[in-house]
Design a protein around this nucleic acid. Structure first.
Lengths: 253, 253
DNA sequence: CTGGTGTGTTGCAGTACTTGCAACGTCCAT
DNA sequence: ATGGACGTTGCAAGTACTGCAACACACCAG
């Protein structure tokens, strides 16, 4: 809507790929160097980009601080955290919390496994949306139209032989998930890792977040992991209850 | 430098304080509502702000993902992490890694204590710059002029009776720290928590990061913590060596 | 030392883009 | 019903953004 701002903001994902110099930025934006310079300067003043010693630009530290505050403003996260910790203490495995926003699913909290074998994942990282158990729950709850549109738009990378292969299969999976009220990912993302997940709902019944327990085959089999399902669902329900309990007034800071 | 972009970016820290509606944003920016609307829309298109169900705006998830990538582009972090983990395994206490950027010091990595008592701190959160041991090391290495200017500009909150009270005291402390090559924070931020820190240097000898070990009084006394100093310095030196060793090529993942 | 190429930077004139206004739509409370 | 609060849209006015061209500076080769 605003050309100048649009251009300026386009610099951020560009720099996320790695540091770049003025010329590179100008080229990728398809503007004159002087224009790119002025945009970068403005971003710099706000701390969103940083000029490193070799004169190249990279993303700035203020961005990290902002993201931190962004997460702290998510009510669900605060409410859910103690529950996630307790669940981790009970079963020992890695616990994740994820939300859907604007065609993306991302982890907003994580409690590490207490087993020596840990899985790779990171808060803030977009989730493998076509296979992750939490993603299935979040997408299954979208309104029909939006769900179909998104499913069409997605790529379906075959991380493993058990990954969701295409849109129709994905939509079928989502229907199943919506009906049963929980989801799994059995080696669909990484061959040896299984997850079981449950939805967290707001007062109106809509799914506002999803949580999962993940463990590698070498620690527990898929069947054993599934025995944790009741516990996971109870935890999710407890969070749902607390979340929809009071209207989170949350005025200003 | 660019008014439009400047205004748009000013919205982000504003929303970091908490969700706000169109009118509030327009007021704080001191522009017409329609202008604020168009800026917000542009931010929205880039995923930096999100419109929640009650129509109010808050910071968006893309911001979190961007910050994630920003951190992954920090070479020091990748290099240092395994060393931090090893140090944590050896001593059991909380280990932090921090950098200085544009008048701010912030944690970019953390390994949690293995003792039950954990301290509060968060990756991405700005550090208490006048008292934290890592901050002293990072600021001590700034060029004279910049250091004085910054010291003057800072506030000196008295978190405890042992907090750094004012600029002259701070500058004296920095001189001492620079000379001895390590730093401590003995109850200057929280009464019962002590830290010991060491600098990480680049090939040119400049301090590029600092790391610290922190522990509460109830676990170890300050004196006991100080006995870890050689270990901390060895770890920092090892990271320095690896960091300045090869030029990290770093072409995407 | 000199001339070349590669950067990043600045002043300026033209105009594309942003701005604030005013009018409209909607929702909610009175 | 009626008023107010809020978000949204089209438009004319003019500001502030753009690209150009010239400059500054560093680096390298001859």
């Amino acid at each position: 809507m605003s050309q100048t701002v649009d251009r300026a903001l386009s610099i951020l994902p560009l720099l996320a790929e790695g540091p770049a110099d003025l010329g590179q930025v100008a080229d990728r934006l398809d503007v004159h160097k002087s224009t790119a310079l002025r945009l970068l300067r403005t971003l710099h003043e706000h701390g969103l980009v940083y000029r490193q010693s070799d004169q190249r630009y990279r993303l700035g530290a203020r961005l990290i601080a902002l993201a931190q505050e962004a997460m702290e403003n998510l009510d669900i996260r605060e409410i859910a955290h103690p529950h996630l910790v307790r669940l981790n203490e009970q079963c020992g495995h890695t616990v994740h919390l994820a939300v859907y926003e604007e065609s993306e699913v991302l982890y907003i909290d994580k409690v590490e496994s207490r087993y020596p074998v840990r899985m790779y994942s990171r808060i803030g990282k977009p989730v493998a949306i076509t296979v992750a158990a939490v993603a299935k729950l979040l997408l299954a709850d979208l309104p029909e139209g939006e769900r179909r549109a998104l499913a069409d738009k997605l790529d379906y990378p075959m991380y493993t032989s058990r990954s969701t292969p295409n849109a129709p299969a994905f939509l079928r999976e989502l229907d199943k998930v919506r009906e049963q009220g929980w989801a799994t990912d059995l080696g669909g993302h990484e061959e040896s890792i299984n997850c079981v997940a449950a939805p967290i709902r707001g007062a109106d019944g809509r799914v506002v977040a999803a949580m999962s327990v993940s463990a590698p085959n070498v620690v527990v089999t898929a069947d054993e992991l599934l025995t944790l399902l009741p516990l996971v669902r109870r935890t999710a329900d407890a969070i749902s209850g607390e979340y929809s309990g009071r209207t989170p007034v949350k005025d200003s800071q």
